[in-house]
């Protein structure tokens, strides 16, 4: 699904490095991220907190908070570099070509404006339609995301909506300008499980119908299993495994990905014990040399202390681990 086809990926990251320059020196938060998302594809980005998931999303849309900056590498949207564009151009791309959904709907919605006003404004900024057409579109979109009586609710304020309904409005807003790509950072993390299931279903259905590609960032493997086509697993600012969702979820290859999957309690069985990886994710100030996972890895070898494994093709995916090097 990647570079063989003629159409370029919707999104491609090439060796992306993000750094924070602080008093204590330069901290490397993303260390050579390479991945791509094909048109219409949902790429899940998973990992534990601090792995660099949100920074990856923020770097794509030019929303890194200073002193965070892209130190090297490239971000390509439909084959064109966008990482060095001026702020103004990036802001336009953000509304028009890349839609965003965050954990807290109120980061996307202005409490002072009716949801309809916000939708209509987004539609009219990016599409050549009249006020009336925009309103009709907005009502249709709200209905599509599952807001009942949308022709009435369009005139409501964000605080009049429940948490789940607000996140539906945010999805409508993200899709309003018909973007090629949606970046969704923990879109259901704040929601109850029964609401989460509905939001995921809506997001998936609408993006599939429109052929919109999605970068779905979450720490919830269940959400990924249910939604993504491919998954990238992150650890300490690196992608350590990437591949088709079934491979990564059912038979992960990287020792960390294996441990991660085994540590999640399941609904359909009750193991005697959960698989346990000792220790915790390192802090940015103390990322181990070589393979960043080596102090916790049950298979660590002498070379893992010094040399850093890179992503290499294994089966239908890629894994960054010396155990899976060609010829091993």
């Amino acid at each position: 699904m990647t570079s063989q086809s003629l159409t370029p990926p919707v999104l491609e990251l090439r060796n992306l490095v993000v750094e924070f320059v602080t008093r204590h020196g330069t901290l490397r938060a993303l260390d050579g991220i390479s991945l791509s998302i094909a048109p219409g594809e949902v790429l899940g980005v998973v990992g534990e907190s601090g792995a660099g998931k949100s920074l990856t999303g923020a770097a794509v849309i030019g929303l890194l908070e200073p002193p965070g900056r892209i130190a090297s590498g490239e971000v390509l949207l439909a084959g064109q570099r966008i990482d060095h564009l001026p702020m103004e151009d990036l802001r336009h791309i953000r509304g028009k070509r890349i839609g965003t959904i965050f954990q807290d709907p109120l980061t996307s919605l202005d409490p002072l404006y009716r949801v309809g006003e916000q939708l209509i404004e987004t539609i009219r900024t990016h599409l050549p339609v009249s006020e009336q057409e925009a309103r009709a579109r907005a009502i249709a979109l709200l209905a599509e995301v599952g807001i009942p009586a949308s022709e009435k609710r369009i005139d409501g304020y964000p605080h009049e909506f429940s948490g789940g309904m607000r996140q539906r409005v945010v999805i409508a807003l993200a899709l309003a300008a018909e973007p090629e790509l949606i970046i969704a950072d923990e879109p259901t993390t704040a929601l109850d499980v029964s609401v989460q299931a509905q939001i995921i279903a809506v997001l998936k259905k609408l993006c599939r119908e429109r052929g919109t590609a999605v970068m779905l960032i979450t720490h919830d493997m269940g959400v990924i299993a249910e939604t993504a086509d491919r998954v990238a697993v992150m650890y300490a600012g690196r992608v350590i495994e990437i591949g088709p969702v079934r491979d990564v979820v059912k038979s992960p290859k990287h020792p960390y990905a294996k441990g991660l999957m085994g540590s999640i309690p399941a609904l359909d069985e009750r193991p005697e014990r959960l698989l346990q990886i000792e220790g915790a994710m390192p802090r940015l100030t103390a990322i181990p040399q070589g393979c960043a996972f080596h102090p916790r890895c049950p298979h660590v070898m002498p070379r893992c202390h010094e040399a850093r494994p890179v992503l290499e093709a294994v089966g239908a995916g890629q894994v960054a681990c010396f155990l899976h090097e060609v010829g091993q």
Binding site: V193, S194, V195, Q196, A197, Q198, I200, A201, D220, M221, G222, V223, A225, E226, V245, R246, V249, K250, I264, A266, L267, D268
Partner: peptide
């Protein structure tokens, strides 16, 4: 409503 991590594809009622 719980996402199906086991990917069994069991049939479920929409919530």
């Amino acid at each position: 409503a719980v996402p199906d991590l086991a990917m069994t594809g069991r049939s479920r009622q929409p919530v």
